Simulated assay, not measured.
Amino acid sequence: MENRHASHPNEVKAFDTERLRHEYVIESLFVPGELKLVYSHVDRYIIGAAVPVQETIELKADSKTIGADTFLERREIGIINIGGPGTITVDGSDYELDTRECLYVGLGAKEVLFKSSDSASPAKFYLNSTPAHKTYPTVKTGPSDAFNVHLGSIDHSNERTIYRYIHDKGIQSCQLVMGMTVLEPGNMWNTMPAHTHNRRSEVYLYFNLPEDAVVFHLMGEPQETRHLVMRNEQAVISPSWSIHSGVGTHNYTFIWGMAGENQVFEDMDGIAMKELR
C-alpha cells in the first residue's frame, strides 16, 4: 500500500508540477488483475481499485499500514463499479454490481472478494475507505435509486446531474460520503464557483474521458491556486484547505468521496469568483 503524507498549504506554494502530482495525483489505479491501494494521512483516507480479470481478488489488509488483521476491522468502505458487470462477495453474500452501481460495506466484515462477470470486459471497482466506529449494514444502490439533482446550464458549461449514494439521508455510514457527478455533452466545468470545507477532505476520480482529453483540476488556497492535468481514470486528493474544481476539454464523469467531521453535503465555504487568484 502506497503512503501519502499531508502537506501544509504554505509548503504547497513552493511545489513544482512534479511535486504537486507526487503528493496529490494518483495516476494509475486500475491495473488488470490487481488490487491497488493508496493510504492518505489526510483524514486517514484509503483510495483504491480492484480489477479482477480471470481470478477473484480479495480485499486484504496491509497490517503494517493500518495495524489490523482484516481490512474492515476498524474501517468502512464504499465501492463504485465503473467497468463491466461484476460481483462483490461480503462474508459469503453476493452483490452483483453493474457499471456505476455502488456498494457500502460496514465495519467488521471479514472477507470481501471481487470478481468480474466477463474477463473480456472486467469490472473496475473503485474504492474509498475511512475509519469507522460503528457497524452499518451492507447496502447496494445505483443511479436509479440514489438521491439525485440536476443542476447548472449549457450557458455556464456546467449542466450536470449529481447522484448521492452514501450520505446522511441515503446509505448510512460513520463518516464516509460518496457519490457521482455526470456532466452533459457540451459541458466542461465542475464545482465552480469554487468552495472549501474545512471540516472535510475530498477525493475526485475522473473517468469517462476520451484518451486524448484532459481535465484541468484546480487546487490550492483560493488566493494561491494551482492546476493539475488529469486524464481518464485518475484520482486526486483534496485536503480541507484546498478548492477542488475543474474544466475539461470534453465532458466527463467524476466520483467524489468525502471524510471528516460531518456528513452534511451542503456544509461548504463558498468562494466568490472575484476572490480567486
Rank of each mutant, 00 (worst) to 15 (best):
S153Q: 09
L183N: 02
V149S: 12
C174P: 00
N158R: 08
N148S: 11
G142H: 13
K169N: 09
L218I: 15
R160Y: 07
N187F: 12
H156L: 11
A213G: 06
L183D: 03
A194Y: 00
M178E: 03
G186W: 05
N148Y: 05
T161A: 04
F147I: 11
K134N: 14
A146Y: 04
E159Y: 15
R164I: 06
Y163L: 15
L218T: 12
P185K: 11
A213Y: 13
G179R: 05
V182Q: 09
D212W: 09
L176D: 02
M192F: 06
R199W: 14
Y206F: 15
R200H: 03
H150Q: 15
G186F: 01
M188P: 00
A194Q: 11
V214E: 13
K140C: 04
T191Q: 09
P210V: 14
S173L: 09
R160N: 08
E202W: 02
Y204W: 07
G152V: 13
Q175M: 10
K169Q: 02
T135N: 10
D145G: 04
P143C: 13
V203S: 03
Y206Q: 06
P137M: 05
G142V: 05
W189R: 14
S201H: 05
V139R: 02
V203R: 00
R200F: 07
W189T: 05
H156Y: 04
F207L: 07
V203I: 14
A146P: 00
V177I: 13
M192L: 15
Q172R: 07
D212F: 06
P137W: 10
G170L: 10
G170H: 02
M192V: 15
N208A: 10
P185L: 10
I166R: 02
L209S: 03
S173Y: 07
T181P: 01
H167D: 06
Y163S: 07
N187V: 04
V177G: 04
A213T: 10
T135F: 08
V215R: 00
T181I: 13
D168I: 13
S173K: 01
T191I: 14
K169R: 13
E221K: 00
M188V: 15
D155N: 12
N158W: 05
P185C: 09
S153T: 11
T141P: 01
V182E: 14
E211L: 03
T135D: 11
K140E: 06
V177A: 07
N190Q: 10
G220K: 00
N187H: 01
G170Y: 04
M192Q: 11
K169C: 05
I162E: 12
Y136R: 12
